[in-house]
């Protein structure tokens, strides 16, 4: 029994050596394999949700994402919808958004890029106001707070 313990201990120690030796040469392939697992995606509360639809404008495209209400087990009461303007943006943006595509406008975004002033005019009870408005590497992003129906 004692001998078995000693031998298995030493074998395990050598396996640890192998683990470290293959770690660095294999880091890229291990990371790629890990990144493909189903849970390896950024939570929509950070990533902003999948794209729902887009408006192609004169020199830029406005991408409206799906509303995000994700909680741990169920949807939360409060969430947001993310809008991304991509491309060459005009200095002043004013867009009316129907994020749930029910035919009725939900809010108007007025954005003055140079002064970094963003105003949201809610046209629906579900819209709570501005959460985030920031310049991004691709243009500008706004997150508008929502209440769940």
């Amino acid at each position: 029994m004692k001998k078995i313990k000693i031998i298995s201990g030493i074998i395990w120690a050598f396996m640890a050596l192998i683990i470290i030796l293959i770690l660095f040469p294999g880091l890229n392939s291990f990371s790629v394999a890990l990144s493909k697992l189903p849970f390896m995606k950024i939570n929509p509360n950070f990533a902003g949700g999948d794209a729902a639809f887009s408006y192609v404008q004169e020199r830029c495209t406005l991408v409206v994402r799906k509303p995000v209400f994700d909680g741990l087990l169920s949807e939360r009461k409060h969430g947001f919808v993310q809008l991304d303007w991509r491309g060459e943006l005009p200095d002043v943006i004013s867009d009316t958004i129907d994020f749930d595509r029910d035919g009725g406008s939900d809010f108007v975004v007025n954005l003055k890029r140079n002064d970094a002033v963003t105003v949201i005019n809610p046209l629906s009870d579900l819209v709570t106001g501005l959460n985030v408005s920031v310049p991004t590497s691709y243009g500008w992003t706004v997150r508008v707070g929502l209440k769940r129906e």
């Binding site: 990371s31 849970f39 995606k41 950024i42 939570n43 929509p44």
Partner: peptide, 11 residues
């Protein structure tokens, strides 16, 4: 939630 709660890059 099958997602990562960190605003970083997956790979």
């Amino acid at each position: 939630t099958k997602s990562i709660i960190f605003p970083g890059s997956i790979i």
